[in-house]
Structures are given as C-alpha cells and as structure tokens.
Amino acid sequence: MRPVIPYVTAALLFGLGVYGVLRRRNAVLVLMGVELMLNAVNLILITADTTTRALLPHSGQVFALFVIVLAAAEIGVGLAIVLQLYRMRASVAVDEVPLDTAPLDEVPMDKVPMEGQR
C-alpha cells in the first residue's frame, strides 16, 4: 500500500474544504465545507495509523472516531444557530450579517416569500 495516495487525497479534500468555506455564501454550504475539512483530517489520521506504529495501537482510528463524534456535535449546534439566524433575518447568507448594527426583531414567517414560489 502506498500511503501517499490517501495522503494526497486528504490534502486535496482539505483544500477543497477551505475553498468551500471561503467561497460559499449560504451558511449551510459553509458547514458542508467544514465537513469536508473534517473528513480530510480523519483520512489523514487513519492513514497515519498505517504508516506509524503508535505506542497505543490503532490510536489513529480511535482519534478518527472521536473526530466523527465531535463533528456530529458541531453540526447539530451549528445548524441550530443557522436556523435561528434564518428566523431572525430570513436569510442565511453569511455576508449579510453586519456586526455593528442593532439586531433586527424576529421576522415573522409569513412575511418571507418562499423562494421558487413567486
């Protein structure tokens, strides 16, 4: 097994994740980029598990498990925030959140036209 293949895959996935985080306006898509990054890290951890004989066996895989758990927790909280943001602003574009103005009141759901239903 040549470890360079999964390593390079992971590196490219990480780069794609960074690209996605920086490029996308929709908060959910940003979170998808974050997932890509986390997966890339997991892949590196698993591959490192094969290339390195750690003191504790399979510690790379154990770490990968933990990362998956963390990712799940993170995505839960993150999406809760996104949905709350949507309730307040009726938009989840990350560059439409000015930090120096007072927060608007919650926008009632009926005032927001559904996209695609114009």
């Binding site: 960074v18 985080v21 920086l22 306006r25 940003v30 990350v94 560059d95 959140v97 000015p98 930090l99 120096d100």
Partner: peptide, 13 residues
C-alpha cells in the same frame, strides 16, 4: 474586529 464571518474566516485561514 467587527468584520463579518466571511472576512474573519478568510483572515483565519
């Protein structure tokens, strides 16, 4: 410091 998420993320990465 007050920059919104996109600019902050760019800065961090």
């Amino acid at each position: 410091h007050r920059s919104a998420l996109p600019r902050a993320v760019v800065a961090v990465l």
